[in-house]
């Protein structure tokens, strides 16, 4: 044996220290790697707080709804599992009464009562899901988007219990066999993690608006809520809108135009 006890202890101690210091060490390596740097995309769309205004009156037929949902689900590899128990969805239809429980009145115009609304993650100003996540796997970006880090999610589903909007889905099983046509440019998810709408952060980074906005023929408007000149602010200043469950104080960033069918 060429190694004595003292050397062994020294090496063991050093490797323990290295192991503990592992995470900052990565940063060090990158720093020592000369001038390497990371930058946002040159065309990236930026905002202080991204928001969405949805005017379902401008969505005509059931086909148009399907087109919007398909635009989202197909590019994000959202599986179609085909049963309600294991269901995964990012954006979906729901009637007025169940979209706005507690707000819906007994007597509302026919055009509202039977018109499906499009529901998705509200990217809240004070998201309860972010507050409860034990690993920061779900977090709020400076531009207001409530994002998910699927690499870090442990699948405790505390965020699903905390979300007042039912916006989150869990992968109860491997989603891959249920993705009809994979979008090769976007990852899938794996079993055991929670997923939801990301406001298409991967498209914003490349200068593109969210897929649902693009597929909506102007029915969905997207922009910076804190910019008085933005498209969303223009709509909000002229149309009466509702947000889902504002009373719980989460500050949803998705607005719904109510009525206002007179121009149609």
């Amino acid at each position: 044996m060429s190694i004595n006890r003292r050397d062994f202890l020294r090496i063991a101690g050093a490797s323990t220290l290295f192991g503990l210091a592992g995470v900052p060490a990565v940063e060090e390596i990158l720093k020592t790697n000369a001038e390497a740097a990371v930058l946002p995309g040159p065309n990236a769309l930026k905002a202080k707080r991204w928001a969405m205004v949805i005017d379902v009156n401008k969505i005509g037929t059931e086909e148009d709804y399907k087109k919007i949902i398909h635009a989202c689900h197909s590019i994000h590899n959202v599986p179609d599992i085909g049963n309600k128990k294991d269901e995964v969805k990012w954006i979906w239809e729901e009637d007025y009464e169940h979209s706005f429980p507690g707000v819906s009145d007994e007597f509302v115009p026919e055009s509202i009562e039977h018109k499906p609304f499009l529901l998705l993650c509200n990217h809240c100003a004070k998201p309860a899901c972010v507050r409860v996540c034990p690993t920061k796997a779900t977090f709020k970006r400076p531009d207001g988007i409530v994002a998910m880090d699927y690499h870090r999610c442990i699948g405790c589903r505390f965020c699903m219990a905390a979300c007042p909007y039912g916006a989150r889905s869990f992968n109860w099983r491997d989603p891959r066999p249920f993705i009809k046509e994979e979008n090769k440019e976007f990852p899938t998810r794996m079993k055991g993690v929670v997923e939801k709408c990301t406001f298409c952060s991967e498209r914003l980074a490349r200068g593109l608006k969210p897929a649902c906005v693009e597929a909506s023929n102007g029915a969905i408007v997207f922009g910076d809520l804190e910019d008085p000149g933005s498209e969303v602010r223009k709509v909000l200043s002229t149309k009466y809108t509702l947000r889902r469950k504002p009373e719980v104080g989460t500050g949803p960033s998705v607005y719904y135009v109510i009525g206002g069918n007179e121009h149609a």
């Binding site: 990565v26 940063e27 990158l30 790697n33 000369a34 001038e35 390497a36 740097a37 990371v38 930058l39 946002p40 995309g41 040159p42 990236a44 977090f139 970006r141 400076p142 531009d143 994002a147 880090d149 690499h151 952060s201 914003l204 980074a205 490349r206």
Partner: peptide
């Protein structure tokens, strides 16, 4: 690992190499 955090958590897209 650092790319992943940079893209996902900080909204970056481009890596400028050494």
């Amino acid at each position: 690992d650092s790319w992943r955090d940079s893209v996902l958590r900080d909204g970056n897209l481009v890596y400028e190499s050494t």
